[in-house]
């Protein structure tokens, strides 16, 4: 079985690349190849110009990897845990103390410094693992489902943390099933299905690429029938189903047409609350470009 097939993509320095796809799409395999944990049967991958297969040790120094499922050494304390990994990256003792303090502050675990890892909540362990992936100050972060299994509060905390890392200028490749959050965080999106990259580009490019036409969103206080009549006359459509005084319809006209419709509604005394052009969100795009194929 081929986990990832014919995948070709480039992530710019400083970009936040969101990898989206159903379970079994090949996201984790792709990430493991980039983290120098798997060798591709064919093809090459480079991180900052270093070939992942031929120079794994250099690549590992450049990459901070956080897997979707990970374990922790329960019998170590929080600072010992980070110290172990910092030492494993060859960081000198003096620097380690400072780095650990900074990282614990970043992930808001300073108060748990002397606590055993075993005693931390799931959300805290996720944050600790993120801190672990940062101990050697990597240029690229590969985060596989960093918010999976977290409660809403922990998820918000994780999102804020990722925004902070984004502000710090880290390049991040992140996978997640929570598409609205990903859309908010990422500069670039790639959608995978059955081991193949279905679509890839900046958020705007993807929206543009998947756009099938304009979407008109109208909300009125009341008189939905009156609004429907105007739209029928202006757009030549036979049915105009308002639901709870709201309407979403595909629209192929120009900006002038929009202006004319809105002016007429106001002139006819329709109490319009909102009149806007809707955009496809990431969930819509995801549903549009994927076929639900599972390997």
């Amino acid at each position: 079985m081929t986990a990832v097939d014919n995948l070709s993509l480039e992530v710019d320095t400083g970009a936040i690349f969101g990898l989206v796809g159903p379970n079994g799409a090949g996201k984790t395999t792709t990430m493991k190849i980039l983290a120098a944990l798997l060798t591709p049967t064919s093809g090459r991958a480079w991180i900052a110009g270093e070939d992942v297969s031929t120079n794994p040790s250099r690549v590992r120094q450049l990459v901070g990897y956080m897997p979707d499922f990970f374990g922790v050494y329960d019998d170590l304390k929080v600072d010992e845990y980070l110290d172990f990994y910092a030492a494993s990256y060859g960081i000198p003792v003096r620097e380690r103390r400072m780095i650990i303090g900074d990282l614990l502050e970043l992930v808001d675990l300073s108060h748990k410094r002397q606590a055993y890892v075993d005693s931390l909540s799931r959300g805290m362990k996720q944050r600790l693992c993120l801190a672990r992936s940062l101990v050697h100050d990597p240029a690229l972060l590969i985060l596989d489902e960093p918010a999976s299994g977290l409660d809403p509060r922990a998820r918000v905390e994780m999102r804020e943390l990722l925004k902070e890392l984004k502000a710090m200028g880290k390049t991040i490749i992140i996978s997640s099933h929570i598409l609205p959050e990903l859309a908010e965080l990422c500069t670039h999106i790639g959608i995978m299905e059955a081991g193949q990259l279905v679509i890839n580009g900046t958020n705007e490019e993807i929206v543009e690429h998947t756009r099938t036409g304009r979407i008109l969103q109208i909300k009125v206080m009341n008189q939905a029938d009156g609004a429907a009549l105007i739209l029928q006359e202006e757009l030549g459509l036979t049915e105009m189903p308002f639901l709870n005084n709201c309407l979403d319809i595909p629209f192929s006209g120009s900006d002038e047409d929009l202006n004319r419709i809105l002016t007429r509604m106001i002139k006819d005394g329709i109490p319009v609350i909102s009149f806007s052009e809707g955009k496809n969100n990431l969930e819509d795009i995801f549903m549009q470009v994927t076929k639900g194929v599972v390997q």
């Binding site: 990459v63 990897y65 494993s88």
Partner: peptide, 14 residues
């Protein structure tokens, strides 16, 4: 089994 091996291999340890 503890899912810590990948994290260990990811480091600079040979």
């Amino acid at each position: 089994e503890k899912q810590t091996l990948d994290l260990l291999i990811c480091t600079r340890l040979s």
